Structures are given as C-alpha cells and as structure tokens.
Simulated assay, not measured.
Amino acid sequence: MAHKILLFMKRRPDLTVEAFRDYYETRHAPLAEKYSQGVTRYIRRYVDPQPHPETGTFTDGPDVITELWFDDEAIYRATLGYMTKSLMPDDIVADEANLFDRSSFRIATVVEHETDFGR
C-alpha cells in the first residue's frame, strides 16, 4: 500500500503559468530531490482550470498538486509529522519564495478507493 502526501500550491501572481512550470521543473524539483529520502514517487500535477456550466470559472484552486509517495509507512508518518510541524530547510524556503504564494500552501493525505470498470 502506498502512502501519499498531497501539497496544493498556487504560483506567485507575477509569474506566468509557463514560467512557473518551467521554474518548478528545472530548479525547484531538483533542489527538493535532495531532501526526498524515502520518497518513492514525486509527481507534479499542473492544473489547467476549466469552466463549469453552473459555477463558472475555476479561479480559487491550486496551480499545482504535488504528490509525495511512500512505500514505508514509518517514513511517511515521520515526513508528514515534520512537514506539518516544522519549516522546511532554509534553501527550500528561499527557493519557494521565488515560485509560490507560500500563504496558499495546503497539505493533505488521502485514502484511495478505485472502481474497477472491468475493461
């Protein structure tokens, strides 16, 4: 069973979507890798908002949902405890200021259920 931590984050308002994604992939993700011991998958899911016929434009969501996957439950719990009680290392925090609206950060965990369509 995989354990996941989800990070919901918005880009700095002065960055274009393209600049945000490029910086995350070429600068921030490689920096974050050095602190990712025990992470088995590090996935960035970039959100492309779409209109809804009843509620309109999707403007209040994150620009990226980052997934940190763990096979080892003890490492997952330790990482989650650290992330929810401590600030990240100084070089990560400094780099995040180049990229994110840090006040938008949200952290969640998930319990997944999947429907098998038998296809």
Score class of each variant (00 low, 15 high):
Tyr82Ser: 13
Thr115His: 10
Val47Ile: 15
Ser104Pro: 14
Arg44Cys: 00
Met88Lys: 12
Glu18Ala: 14
Glu25Lys: 03
Pro13Cys: 07
Tyr23Met: 09
Ser86Glu: 07
Leu6Trp: 03
Pro49Val: 10
Phe8Asn: 04
Thr55Tyr: 09
Glu112Ser: 09
Leu15Val: 09
Tyr35Gln: 08
Val64Pro: 10
Tyr23Ala: 08
Thr55Pro: 01
Arg119Asn: 05
Phe105Tyr: 06
Met88Pro: 13
Phe100Ala: 09
Glu112Val: 11
Glu25Gln: 01
Pro53Trp: 00
Asp14Ile: 13
Gly81Asn: 15
Ala94Asp: 08
Ile75Lys: 00
Pro49Trp: 10
Asp48Met: 12
Glu25Arg: 11
Arg12Lys: 15
Thr109Ile: 07
Phe20Ala: 14
Lys85Pro: 00
Leu6Lys: 01
Pro49Glu: 05
Phe8Leu: 13
His28Gly: 10
His52Cys: 06
Val111Ala: 07
Ile75Phe: 06
Asp48Pro: 03
Met9Arg: 14
His52Asn: 13
Ala97Glu: 12
Lys34His: 06
Glu112Asp: 09
Thr66Ile: 08
Val39Ile: 06
Ala32Glu: 00
His28Lys: 13
Asp90Phe: 01
Arg102Phe: 07
Ser104Glu: 11
Val93Met: 11
Pro89Gln: 05
Lys85Ala: 10
Glu18Gln: 15
Thr79Met: 00
Thr16Asp: 07
Thr59Leu: 03
Asp22Thr: 15
Asp90Arg: 15
Glu67Leu: 07
Glu67Phe: 01
Glu114Gly: 04
Arg45Thr: 10
Arg21Tyr: 13
Ile65Gly: 05
Val110Leu: 03
Arg77Pro: 04
Trp69Asn: 02
Thr84Pro: 10
Gly38Thr: 03
Gly81Val: 13
Gly81Trp: 11
Leu15Asn: 08
Tyr42His: 01
Phe117Cys: 04
Asp22Cys: 13
His28Tyr: 15
Leu15Gly: 06
Asp63Val: 11
Arg119Cys: 02
Pro51Leu: 02
Thr57Arg: 14
Lys4Tyr: 05
Arg102Leu: 12
Arg106Val: 10
Ala97Leu: 14
Met9Pro: 08
Arg119Ser: 08
Thr66Gly: 03
Lys4Thr: 05
Asp71Trp: 05
Tyr42Ile: 01
Leu99Val: 11
Ala108Gln: 02
Leu99Ile: 15
Arg27Asn: 14
Pro30Phe: 12
Gly61Asn: 07
Glu25Phe: 03
Asp116Asn: 02
Lys10Tyr: 03
Arg12Gly: 08
Tyr76Cys: 06
Tyr35Ile: 04
Ala78Arg: 02
Ala78Ser: 14
Thr79Trp: 01
Met1Gly: 13
Gly38Gln: 05
Pro30Lys: 01
Glu73Asp: 09
Val47Trp: 07
Glu54Leu: 06
Phe105Pro: 02
Glu114Tyr: 04
Asp72Asn: 11
Thr84Phe: 09
Ala108Asp: 07
Glu96Lys: 01
Asp90Lys: 15
Asp60Tyr: 03
Pro30Val: 08
Gly81Ala: 13
Arg11Phe: 15
Glu67Trp: 00
Ile92Trp: 05
Ile107Gln: 06
Leu80His: 04
Ser86Phe: 11
Glu96Trp: 04
Val64Ser: 12
Val93Lys: 06
Leu80Ile: 04
